[in-house]
Amino acid sequence: MIKIVRKLQLLVACLCCTAISFAQGTSQPDMADVMRSNGKIYVVVAVCLTILIGLFIYVFLLDRKITRLEKNKE
């Protein structure tokens, strides 16, 4: 039993070592870190939010218009 546990421990240790060396061998993928650090990403968020809010206002007004039409028909 102890032998098996030892073997498992060794295996885990080996796996950890290979994982660490693997991580060191590869460089970090490029990300838009500059955009995040100088805060320009907030501009993108603001623009997209404006579009989304505009879209929702449009759909909401359509909804109200159709509700009014439905009431007129009855």
């Binding site: 993928p29 490029d30 990403i41 968020v45």
Partner: peptide, 24 residues
């Protein structure tokens, strides 16, 4: 509406995994 606002705010600002090829 609230979920989509969260999608845009969280989707652009929250942390994502760093992957090759896909990147941001």
């Amino acid at each position: 509406f609230l979920l989509l606002v969260y999608t845009i705010v969280g989707g652009f600002l929250l942390d994502v995994p760093r992957l090759f090829i896909l990147n941001e």
